[in-house]
Computed example of a mutant assay.
Amino acid sequence: MAWLDSVSEVPSRARVHHMEDRQSNFPTSACVLLGLGLGAFFDGIVFHQLLQWHHMLSGWYPLNSIENITLNTTWDGIFHSAAYVLVLAGLFLMWQRTRRSAPRWSGSQCLGTILIGWGIFNLAEGVVDHQILRLHQVNETVPDGQRIFWDIGFLLWGAAMIGMGVAMARVGAQEGVHAKGSLQVVRNTPPALVYVIFLLLLVLATAPAFRPVLFGLSVDDLLQLRCFSSV
């Protein structure tokens, strides 16, 4: 009966190899980068602009003068440029993976890995910017004693997104389907054209950040930032 056992092992081995191939062929890094960028965009648009709970350097330079408002607005823009670059990098990696081989897609796995990236952003932002560097806190419109609770909530939100994302990615890895026709156009796009487009988009996003004169700032102004100051 040994031959029956060996025959029964063939389908199970095939399923294992199929699942491993599906997982390795999914553009995980691209989706994580998209999640990082989307998390940064959400933070910048909702917290910095719509709610105006804080700005990029409002913990160091409160909005009590025109100069500080200008400085914070500039660094909010640089922050958005960084978010733009993260999303652009995610799309570029996804295009590269699609061009080399048709990836296996799953809505749950895609959304799950994006949530993982978003959660990683929240944790990094919450620990480094909010607690270590003290660039700002989540909600600076509330009394000082209450701000720590908003910071803790932001960290818990990020941890919850990572946990939910991991669970969704695991479920999606078992139900992925092979992407074909919808990605054929992407695979047939000339690589040179794609490189030019991404390069132009990258320049549009980052050039202002590296051209302080466009914001009315000089090198001397930038050196006055607390991180460069001896005070």
Rank of each mutant, 00 (worst) to 15 (best):
M19K: 11
E20Y: 12
E20V: 14
E20P: 00
D21A: 14
D21C: 10
D21M: 12
D21L: 14
D21S: 14
D21E: 15
Q23P: 00
Q23I: 15
S24K: 14
S24T: 13
N25D: 14
N25I: 06
N25L: 11
F26R: 01
F26I: 09
P27H: 09
P27E: 05
T28A: 12
T28V: 15
T28W: 07
S29C: 07
S29N: 09
S29F: 13
S29Y: 07
A30G: 06
A30F: 01
C31A: 13
C31H: 06
C31D: 05
C31K: 09
V32E: 01
V32N: 02
L33H: 01
L34H: 00
L34I: 11
L34W: 08
G35F: 03
G35M: 06
G35A: 07
L38V: 11
L38P: 00
L38C: 09
G39R: 02
F41W: 14
F42M: 09
F42H: 08
F42D: 04
D43W: 06
D43S: 05
D43R: 01
D43T: 12
I45E: 02
I45F: 13
I45C: 03
V46C: 02
F47C: 03
H48D: 06
H48P: 06
H48E: 03
H48F: 08
Q49V: 12
L50C: 04
Q52C: 05
Q52A: 14
W53T: 04
W53C: 03
H54P: 02
H54N: 14
